[in-house]
């Protein structure tokens, strides 16, 4: 019952986010700020994780091939498939639920407890539009992060398998190029956009409607990470069922 109420409140919030827009000149600035905070500041960790996890995926695949009948190019193929289909869109999004998500919840939550949101409302500003809308727009750039993660993941796989002596460079690249289904990319980017929307709105919801003081801001961030990941994983399941099976 409590969950139904929360889901209802979430959709009501979305209605507010898209109504009574903030003055365009101010909104433009807010969007640039969010792009910096949510997108640019996430690049480092995404680069780091993608490269190394891509490497590990290829090493694992190579180590598990011990029959000479299985072609060497399978390493490249398997790396590409797992990176594009799951690792980059889903795994990175879960990490981002921790990074961007808890940042959003704690920043909005601390504005709530220090009455900054009330201050906006008193000035006649639609605080939900002011706070959440620019985050949604900034996260429209999220697919670029994921695209980059895909590229770096595969690149990391190549580096690890070639320099680790598991496959030859040509075999790996041949694997990466073989049996490419372009719909898989479409599927991955559809997921990514849905996850971006979840990443922008679910943590905002958690922060905006929180009650209490500084201690509760910390709790809300943790809670927000859990919920955002759960919803991403459920959405992943639903989208995969709809698009791939």
């Amino acid at each position: 019952m409590k969950y139904f109420k929360e889901i209802g409140a979430y959709f009501l919030m979305l209605g507010q986010v898209f109504s009574r827009p903030t003055k365009p000149s101010v909104m433009r600035e807010l969007i640039f700020k969010e792009i910096e905070e949510l997108i640019l500041n996430s690049l480092g960790i995404v680069i780091f994780i993608s490269f190394f996890v891509g490497g590990v995926v290829s090493i694992q695949t190579a180590l598990n091939i011990n029959s000479p009948l299985i072609p060497e190019m399978l390493v490249g193929y398997a790396t590409r498939q797992s990176v594009i289909l799951e690792f980059a869109p889903t795994f990175i999004s879960i990490i981002m639920a921790g990074k961007i998500g808890s940042f959003i919840t704690s920043s909005i939550g601390s504005m709530r407890v220090t009455e900054q949101i009330d201050a906006l409302e008193v000035m006649g500003i639609n605080s939900l539009n002011y706070l959440v809308f620019p985050k949604i727009i900034a996260l429209l750039l999220y697919p670029f992060i994921i695209g980059m993660s895909m590229f770096l993941g595969i690149f990391g796989g190549w580096v690890a398998s070639v320099y680790g002596g598991f496959t030859s460079s040509t075999a790996f690249i041949e694997g990466v190029q073989s049996d490419f289904v372009s719909f898989h990319l479409t599927y991955a980017f559809i997921k990514t956009l849905v996850f971006a929307f979840i990443l922008a709105t679910v943590p905002s919801f958690q922060g905006y409607y929180m009650k209490g003081g500084a201690l509760e801001v910390g709790k809300a961030s943790t809670y927000s990470f859990v919920w955002t990941s759960v919803i991403i994983i459920l959405a992943n399941y639903v989208i995969t069922t709809l698009l791939l099976s």
């Binding site: 009574r20 220090t114 009455e115 900054q116 009330d118 201050a119 008193v122 000035m123 006649g124």
Partner: peptide, 22 residues
């Protein structure tokens, strides 16, 4: 809603804790 917004453009408020945008 619009009348409230118009009214609020003409309201100044000092919160007990300041409520400055940090």
């Amino acid at each position: 809603r619009n009348q409230k917004k118009d009214l609020r453009e003409h309201i100044g408020m000092v919160f007990q804790g300041g409520a400055l945008f940090d």
